[in-house]
Design a binder for these strands. Sequence first.
DNA 1: CATCTGATG
DNA 2: CATCAGATG
Lengths: 302, 302
Amino acid sequence: MGRKRKEGDSSEEPKKKSKKEEPEASAPSTDWTASSDAKSKDGRPWNMKIVSWNINGIRAWIKKNGHEYVRKENPDIICFQEIKCAEDKLPPECSIPDYYPYWLTADKEGYAGTGILSKTKPLSIKYGLGIEEHDNEGRAITAEYEKFYLVTSYVPNSGRGLVRLNYRTKEWDEAFREYLLGLEEKKPVILCGDLNVAHKAIDLANPKSNYNKTPGYTQAEIDGLSKLLDKGFVDSFRHLYPDVTGAYSFWTYMGNARSKNVGWRLDYFLISKKLLPSLCDSLIRKEVMGSDHCPIALLLAV
Amino acid sequence: MGRKRKEGDSSEEPKKKSKKEEPEASAPSTDWTASSDAKSKDGRPWNMKIVSWNINGIRAWIKKNGHEYVRKENPDIICFQEIKCAEDKLPPECSIPDYYPYWLTADKEGYAGTGILSKTKPLSIKYGLGIEEHDNEGRAITAEYEKFYLVTSYVPNSGRGLVRLNYRTKEWDEAFREYLLGLEEKKPVILCGDLNVAHKAIDLANPKSNYNKTPGYTQAEIDGLSKLLDKGFVDSFRHLYPDVTGAYSFWTYMGNARSKNVGWRLDYFLISKKLLPSLCDSLIRKEVMGSDHCPIALLLAV
DNA sequence: CATCTGATG
DNA sequence: CATCAGATG
């Protein structure tokens, strides 16, 4: 994106923390307001930051001052899931200065919906997958940039009692995978968003009690994500931090789960293997409040 | 009720305000926390206080500390309208010490509903009118005391677009009037509650623009109340304060109506003519917050 | 436990 | 501009 490396407001100040050169063995920084000196494997500093956040209702999020986070994080691109708002009801605060906005809403009012704010104008924007039966819930936006496609998605939840597990795994997951693989034939792909699945036991606090019972940790959902990883996508966070435990991006509002860190890693940056040389860091902003999910951030040297 | 005259916490202290002997000409006191030395026409001090309040949801009202008002006002009986709560969901705080509780809820959850708290145990309690078609919305409770029946009611609103005006006036008002007149054959009656009508132009801020348009000020609704007054009931507030303007008990939450006193007098104490010698005062507690209605109070020497 | 809508006032 | 319920997560 041609930007100089800069994170938040503190890029010109001396670094307060030094980061290990091999982040694989260390837990991710917990101080998201500190700047990062993450580099790609071949030593290039990051020059692009992408954020993804399931904000659980953009109108509620604005009231809780979600804006302040965007200002401080200062990403090049931020992707939202669950905006829960018709486009004509988006409050004016949704137009953040310096960002081009792109919104996709569900037919059903106040349900699901995604959005992208981008400092540079994408080469193209595509709403949905181009498949009618999957395109009425506002679940995916694709922004094309010079060197990659960025897809943000709010993957369908399998629902209480797993009533929608079949749709989710047999229809959506299949169609979405085809869509992503089709894109990848043209350019590398970055997929971010709430994929509504914890991939492995390490990715949720209570794997045993939830396995095949709770939406987000059934074998069919796990397999859906595995297939994507088999086809050349990389789970950027787990790639960098294979053994880090307790790294979650979602905590139910019930029972004080967040304060006890009884959570799930449902939010991901999956990247095409070809982008691995550009990967500098993949971060979980677990301190940031404003939703039952926290934001996640991807640092790239592109 | 055999109680000594006592209002709030200050009955033993010297009176701070002297009240005119002929209250007809004066506006009602605005300081509801001051004690009242109101007397009946024949000079007997009041010894019984009844309060009526449309609280617009008892659970919300409790969160807003509605309790504190009850403690300070310290009525012998308090009647509630629009409790909006199934009986088994009433929070424990609804059981106020020293009061016998009586609740009547609508079949439809969270809709309408009435209640009575009484320091002395009524001789009898009757729920509804005894007419099936009018008894599924929790709109009336009758408590029998030695010297009178107390009926509290949340009269059906005629609805947006006056869709329910016919039911309200041709069915409910008729049946309710018959019910009240039936009671009165036995004992004097006190009717209190949200009658959902402003009787005359003086009883609402914008009579012209609302007449025959807005529920609560159509001719049919007005006539319903007039018929009751023709049959021997007295509007206790207007009887005492025939010319007082701006005396309202309801203000829509919209457009800061309350701070501008753009309101309606929808809440009443109607009393049988026979009770006029006992009437000491009829008050509107317009400073008391916690609902879009304020409480009203009746002082009697019985 | 929180977000929405939609009914109701 | 409030209350509530019910859907959804």
